[in-house]
């Protein structure tokens, strides 16, 4: 374990807690893409199936359970409890265009053609594009509440910090995982536009307005 990964995991945990809390406190999921949340729930449930087969550490196990529980709870709030506030009209990204390539790529490029490994690979590929419906929704509505942009900043930072973790591990432990690294770079690249807007606008107290 290294500082980059710890801060990355905590940033990730912060992001999903910010989102769950925002929806719960405001009793509304306005401006939140339910489709992205479904994709994230799928990412964690397919990636963390090894909870039952491999014990890495207490930290690893506890965090996996939290990520699965919080992502499912968030989907429940969006699609069940506060369904009336879900913004169907702006959450229109076709997620089948993300799921199909992730499945195909996982079957073609993987470390091992076993059930759990294919699911893990699918999860890695899917996670790299899972935020697209949310970013698409923000671009369609032309703006995002500041709490939503804090959520996106924390979520985007987590994988950016993981890239530093992978550099650290390559130099210090001489291990690397190209699938995770390439997907992580793609994932972080998707946030660059948002990071720019967040730093130049939100941190100066302005609302996040995307050029329509």
């Amino acid at each position: 374990m290294n500082i980059f990964r710890i801060i990355g995991d905590l940033s990730h945990l912060l992001a999903i807690i910010i989102l769950l809390r925002k929806i719960w406190k405001t009793r509304s999921c306005a401006g939140i893409s339910g489709k992205s949340q479904i994709l994230f729930a799928l990412v964690y449930t397919t990636r963390y199936l090894d909870l039952v087969t491999t014990y890495v550490s207490l930290y690893n196990t506890v965090m996996k359970i939290i990520f699965i529980a919080v992502s499912i709870a968030t989907c429940y709030l969006i699609y069940m409890k506060f369904k009336a506030t879900y913004d169907h009209n702006h959450d229109t990204f076709r997620i089948e265009f993300l799921l199909a390539p992730a499945v195909i790529l996982a079957l073609l490029i993987n470390h091992d053609f076993t059930f759990l490994e294919i699911l893990w690979t699918f999860s890695i590929y899917l996670e790299s594009v899972a935020i697209l419906p949310q970013l698409f929704m923000v671009s369609k509505t032309g703006e995002a509440e500041s709490i939503t942009s804090h959520y996106l900043f924390a979520l985007g930072s987590y994988r950016a910090l993981y890239i530093l973790n992978w550099i650290y591990r390559y130099h210090n432990e001489e291990i690397y995982d190209l699938i995770a690294i390439v997907a992580g770079i793609v994932q972080t690249a998707l946030y660059c536009d948002f990071f720019y807007l967040y730093i130049t606008k939100v941190l100066r107290g302005k609302k996040l307005q995307l050029p329509a």
């Binding site: 990964r5 995991d9 990730h12 990636r47 090894d50 491999t54 890495v56 690893n60 965090m63 996996k64 990520f67 470390h111 893990w120 993981y162 973790n165 390559y170 001489e174 291990i175 690397y176 995982d177 190209l178 995770a180």
Partner: peptide, 10 residues
Amino acid sequence: EGIKDIHDEL
């Protein structure tokens, strides 16, 4: 070098 055999990251 060693590609990781188990996925020890989240």
